[in-house]
C-alpha cells in the first residue's frame, strides 16, 4: 500500500508535464503540507528540545549521567525569536530585522576566517611551476615497468607538457578572475583581451557543470522509473496478481 501510494503521488506530480491540473495541485499541496509538518516535528525533536529547552530548564539525573542545571538566560531567546514575527506588522516590521540582523551578523563575522580557510590552500594549489625542469622528454614518459626509485624520479620532474598544462591552468584562473573583477568598462586592450579569453574559458567550466547537471537530473528520473516499473509493478503488482 505504501509503495502504491508513492507511485500514485509520483504520477500525480508528473501530470504537470502534460498541463497544470487538479490532480497535480492536490499532490502538490499534500507534499507541501507533509514537508511543513515534518519541519514542525523536527524543529522540536531534533533541535529546540536539546539545544534550547534542556539547556534552559536543565535535565534530571539518568543512567550514567548526572543532572544538569538550567540556565534561565536562554529564556531571552523567546522575545528575540518573537521579534521575527513582527515581519507581518505593517507598523513595526523593522523589529523583525533585529533577529535577522543577528543571524546576518553571525554569518558575516565568519567570512574573514572562511575566506582564508577555503581559498588559502586553493591559491597555494594554483601556484604551479610553469617552467620545465627537464628536457629529456617533452611528454611524461611511460611509467610501466619502472622501479619505485625510477618512478619517483619521473614524478619529481616537470616535463614540458606538464609545464604547458600548468601555464594553461594558471592562465585560466587569472583570466576568469579578471573577467569577474573587471566587469565594469575597461579601456586597457590587454585587460579586454584577457577578459574575452576568460569568457571563453569560463564556458568550459559551464559546459562541465551542464554535463554533471544532466547526469544528476537523469539519475533522479531513472530512480523514479525504477520505483514505478521495477519496485512497484514488477516486484509488487505482478507477483500479487500471479499469486506468487
Amino acid at each position: 500500500m505504501r509503495i502504491t501510494a508513492g507511485v500514485i503521488a509520483t504520477i500525480g506530480l508528473y501530470s504537470v508535464l502534460w498541463k497544470e491540473n487538479k490532480f497535480y495541485r492536490f499532490f502538490e499541496h499534500v507534499f507541501l503540507g507533509l514537508a511543513a509538518g515534518w519541519t514542525m516535528v523536527a524543529l522540536w525533536t531534533e533541535t529546540l528540545k536539546a539545544n534550547w529547552w534542556d539547556k534552559m530548564v536543565g535535565t534530571p539525573a539518568e543512567t550514567g549521567a548526572a543532572a544538569t542545571n538550567g540556565m534561565f538566560a536562554y529564556a531571552l531567546l523567546i522575545p528575540f525569536g518573537l521579534m521575527g514575527y513582527f515581519v507581518f506588522s505593517k507598523k513595526h516590521n523593522w523589529i523583525s530585522r533585529i533577529p535577522i540582523g543577528i543571524i546576518l551578523g553571525l554569518w558575516s563575522g565568519q567570512q574573514v576566517q572562511v575566506w582564508w580557510n577555503t581559498y588559502g590552500p586553493q591559491i597555494d594549489a594554483t601556484l604551479k611551476p610553469i617552467l620545465p625542469t627537464t628536457w629529456d622528454s617533452l611528454i611524461v614518459p611511460s611509467t610501466n615497468g619502472l622501479t619505485p626509485e625510477q618512478l619517483s624520479q619521473v614524478q619529481s620532474q616537470i616535463y614540458f607538457s606538464q609545464a604547458v598544462n600548468n601555464f594553461l591552468f594558471t592562465l585560466t584562473v587569472v583570466s576568469v578572475l579578471s573577467y569577474f573583477l573587471f566587469s565594469f568598462e575597461v579601456k586597457s586592450k590587454a585587460v579586454k583581451g584577457i577578459n574575452t579569453m576568460g569568457r571563453y574559458l569560463l564556458m568550459i567550466g559551464f559546459g562541465a557543470i551542464f554535463g554533471s547537471t544532466v547526469m544528476m537530473r537523469f539519475t533522479l528520473l531513472i530512480d523514479r522509473m525504477h520505483f514505478i516499473w521495477i519496485e512497484w509493478l514488477r516486484d509488487g503488482v505482478f507477483p500479487m496478481i500471479s499469486g506468487r
Partner: peptide, 25 residues
C-alpha cells in the same frame, strides 16, 4: 586543466564578493 581552473576562478570571484558582502552586512 580548464574545468577546475575556471571554476576556481569563479569561486575566487564569488569568495571575494562574499567577503565584501560580509563586511558590508
Amino acid at each position: 586543466t580548464f574545468q577546475t581552473s575556471s571554476i576556481r576562478g569563479i569561486q575566487f570571484g564569488v569568495g571575494l564578493g562574499a567577503l565584501a558582502m560580509g563586511l558590508r552586512l
